[in-house]
């Protein structure tokens, strides 16, 4: 029987699933391998306590993040990003910038390709820099943790999103007003919203912006 040829996107999904499931097994088996080699078991009480402290929030955020980030990252970009991590502070801004400069839409096949290339390159460069850093960790640690450089690393996100905002807000001025005002009001006046809650607020911002966009689109304002 003749095999039907898969489209590029279909093959990305097939390969992404194979790689994803294989990596999931490797990563989940790592703690078990450590236990077997060092002939030990985790301290169950502490494991439960620690897991309960992080799992409810990060699993809930993780599920919402999947629905928020996957459409923006494209298929190839999503399979890579959710394995290599650092999505909102590195992979997604990198992909957004690349698609913007190449003048392609995330939903098109061209967008899919540009997003995948930028995220793959970003993942490879990050891995290489961390490998170099690990090899040179002893001489590098005093530099990385020096009082002079600490503020620069602490302010990476404002420095990143300042630049990115100029590009997107200037191109979508009308649509940006409502979500920016909402987020400013929430973050300034709701004390519970601090730096650690930005991950939860991204889906809120996305859903709100989509709702505003839909209303404006229906009324012919955009």
């Amino acid at each position: 029987m003749k095999k039907e040829k898969l489209t590029y996107l279909e093959s990305v999904h097939r390969d992404g699933r194979i790689w994803g499931i294989a990596l999931c097994l490797v990563i989940l088996l790592f703690p078990i391998a450590v236990c077997l080699v060092f002939k030990t078991v985790p301290q169950w009480n502490a494991l439960l306590k620690g897991a309960l402290a992080v799992m409810p929030m990060y699993w809930a955020v993780g599920i919402v993040e999947m629905f928020t980030y996957i459409p923006m990252l494209g298929a190839g970009g999503a399979y890579l990003s959710f394995v290599t991590g650092n999505i909102s502070n590195l992979k997604l801004p990198c992909a957004i910038d690349a698609m913007e400069r190449a003048n392609v839409k995330a939903s098109s096949e061209e967008g899919e390709i540009i997003s995948t290339i930028s995220i793959a390159v970003s993942s490879i460069v990050t891995t290489i820099i961390i490998i170099i850093g690990v090899i040179l960790i002893a001489p590098l640690t005093p530099v990385l943790e020096s009082e002079v450089l600490t503020p620069a690393f602490e302010q990476m996100l404002p420095a990143l999103f300042g630049g990115l905002a100029v590009v997107f807000v200037s191109k979508n001025a009308k649509l940006s007003i409502a979500p920016i005002i909402l987020m400013l009001v929430l973050f300034i006046f709701v004390p519970a919203l601090d730096k650690s809650t930005v991950g939860i607020m991204v889906p809120v911002g996305v859903l709100f912006t989509i709702a505003v966009a839909r209303i404006m689109y229906k009324k012919g304002l955009i």
Binding site: P71, I96, P158, L175, P179, V198, T209
Partner: peptide
Amino acid sequence: LNNSMFLGMISAFLGYVFC
């Protein structure tokens, strides 16, 4: 819809800057 998603994410990080 695509632009809205990007803007929604960027606006959340802009809010975070002002927290």
